[in-house]
Amino acid sequence: MTENLSSSMEDYLEVIYELSDGGKGVRVKQIADRLGVSLPSVTSALKTLREAGLVNHERYRAVELTPQGRERADALIRRHDALVRFLTEILLIDVETAEQEACHMEHAIGPTTLQRLVNFLQSVQRCPRGDPRWLGRLHARWRGEPCDDPCEPCVLMLESPLEGVDASEGGNGEALQGLMPLSSLGPGVRCIVRHVRGRGPNRRRLADMGICRGVPLEVEKVAPLGDPIDIKVRGYHLCLRKDEAARILVEPAADSS
């Protein structure tokens, strides 16, 4: 990646991106007004950015982002948006405060944390377990509404974070889309494991039994009372409760019935 920029340089980059609105040249005055700084400071900042290869700027001419600058700014904006969304949609902070705080937070936050936040948002909003109720309960609690369900399970769930997606999967988490929990498959279906949720002893146990990313498996049968299920993996039979199977996200194989 590119070298680190100071937080104020990041602010400049963002402002230029916003003002350029899809490719227009931006004037130094506009930038100074938007950030509330003097013209000379803008000029010196632009010099730094130009040396970093992020902007094109000749004296008395409009400022333009280079392709790298655009890419970098794009990432910054996404980071900002993600934080704002997290603050407003999950933590229920009002938009104005969220915008302000996001401006401060975005410079301090590392790529991994941000990645996790993004994944968290996506996981919550498209929860493959199909149970976003806990968020409702949490929000109810913050609003001071009485909680009729025991909160203990929700709190426990929050304590074991949903883990990050592969670095290779980029910031979009698209790879998790189109996957199904193993628990939703019926007998005879072949599939490939793409992701296993959770951490700690339970996850390790599954890994020790051979349930790793990329391993093919087949649902053999379901117990008479609907739970547990018997799967064939690495040439042997393993039985799992549906609770555990729900943690295993699979991609059904093309040839399965």
């Binding site: 997606v165 592969d166 670095a167 999967e169 890994a207 051979g210 790793c212």
Partner: peptide, 21 residues
């Protein structure tokens, strides 16, 4: 963990199964 996006414990287990397979 940052590079490979998973708990090292699981990465090691995956590798071992890779060898075994």
């Amino acid at each position: 963990e940052t590079h490979l996006g998973d708990d090292p414990e699981i990465l090691v287990a995956d590798d071992r199964y890779g060898i075994a397979a």
